[in-house]
C-alpha cells in the first residue's frame, strides 16, 4: 500500500515537472517568441526610398511576359527569392566598401568565401552544414528583415589562437645569435572548433572534418560543454522566472581543418558575415 502511494506521488510530481518544463522551456519559447530580430536597416531600394508599390515608375507597369507568373504562390516565391538575392547583394556592397575582410557563407552552393573589396580571396567547400529549424521555418519578411544587413561578430571563442607570437630575446653578440638559430618549420595546426556569436541572435559553429587528436578532443569538448552549461543554467533559471528565451538560432558548418584555420586567422577580430541561404 505504502509502495503504491509512493509510486503515485513520485509519478505525479515528475509528470507535473515534465509538463511544466515542456511548456516553459520548449513550447512557449518556440511558439510565442521570434528568435530572429530585425536588422536596424530595413530593405530599401537602391535610390534610398523605402520600397512601396506606389513608388514604382508608371513605365514599369508594362511587365515583360517572362515576369508574369500565373500562379500567385509561385509569384510570391519568385519575389521572395529575388528579394533575398537583393538583400545579399546589398550587404555585399556595404561590406565591399569597407576596408576589412569578411565572410560570405553561401549555404545554397555550400561554399564559404573570404572576401575583401568584392574580391574572393579564399574559397572553401562546406563539407556539411546544419541550420536550426528556428531559421529554416521562416520563409517570410521576418527572414528578409533579419538578413537585411551584414551580421557582426559580438563574441568569438575558438580552440586555436588567432595569432601566436614567438618571443625572442635579442642576442648579445654574434656567437649567441648563431646559437639560437633554429631550422624554420611550419607551425602545427591545432584542432579547430570555433563558435561565433553574431548580433541579431545568430551563432555560427565551425568544426573540422578531420578527427581531432586527444588534446584537440579535450579542447573541443570543453568548449562545447561551456556553451551547453550556459543553456542549462538558462533553463534552470527559467523554472523560477518563467522567461526562457529560445536558444540562439545556430548554423553549424564543417570545413577541412586547413580551411577553417585560414578563415579564422584571416578574419579581423570582430568580423562581419553575409548569409546566403
Amino acid at each position: 500500500m505504502k509502495n503504491k502511494l509512493s509510486f503515485w506521488v513520485i509519478t505525479s510530481v515528475l509528470s507535473i515537472f515534465v509538463i511544466y518544463a515542456l511548456i516553459n522551456t520548449v513550447l512557449i519559447p518556440a511558439l510565442s517568441k521570434n528568435p530572429l530580430p530585425k536588422a536596424t536597416v530595413q530593405i530599401k531600394d537602391e535610390k534610398g526610398k523605402t520600397g512601396k508599390v506606389e513608388n514604382i515608375n508608371p513605365k514599369d507597369d508594362t511587365i515583360p511576359d517572362s515576369l508574369v507568373s500565373h500562379n500567385s504562390k509561385d509569384a510570391k516565391m519568385k519575389l521572395f527569392e529575388l528579394r533575398k538575392r537583393e538583400v545579399l547583394l546589398h550587404s555585399r556592397l556595404t561590406l565591399a566598401n569597407e576596408d576589412s575582410m569578411y565572410l560570405v557563407l553561401d549555404l545554397i552552393n555550400n561554399i564559404a568565401i573570404l572576401e575583401m573589396k568584392g574580391v574572393s580571396l579564399h574559397e572553401c567547400r562546406i563539407i556539411d552544414s546544419n541550420i536550426s529549424n528556428s531559421i529554416k521555418m521562416y520563409q517570410t519578411e521576418t527572414l528578409l528583415n533579419w538578413m537585411a544587413e551584414p551580421f557582426t561578430v559580438k563574441h568569438v571563442e575558438a580552440t586555436i589562437p588567432k595569432i601566436v607570437f614567438i618571443e625572442k630575446i635579442a642576442p648579445k653578440d654574434t656567437i649567441e645569435a648563431n646559437k639560437v638559430q633554429v631550422e624554420p618549420a611550419m607551425p602545427k595546426l591545432g584542432d579547430v572548433y570555433i563558435v561565433m556569436d553574431f548580433d541579431r541572435n545568430l551563432r555560427l559553429v565551425i568544426s573540422q572534418t578531420e578527427k581531432p587528436d586527444a588534446e584537440g578532443k579535450k579542447l573541443i569538448s570543453d568548449l562545447r560543454w561551456k556553451y551547453q552549461r550556459i543553456e542549462i543554467k538558462r533553463t534552470l533559471q527559467s523554472f523560477i522566472k518563467f522567461n526562457r528565451e529560445p536558444a540562439m538560432p545556430q548554423i553549424d558548418i564543417v570545413l577541412p581543418k586547413s580551411d577553417a584555420t585560414i578563415l579564422y586567422k584571416a578574419l579581423p577580430l570582430n568580423p562581419k558575415m553575409i548569409l546566403r541561404m
Partner: peptide, 20 residues
C-alpha cells in the same frame, strides 16, 4: 503588386551588381 515589386528588386539587383 508582386510583379511590380519583382521588377523593382530586379532593377536594384542590376544596379548593385554594377556597383560591385
Amino acid at each position: 503588386g508582386i510583379e511590380k515589386l519583382e521588377l523593382r528588386s530586379q532593377r536594384n539587383i542590376n544596379s548593385i551588381e554594377m556597383k560591385l
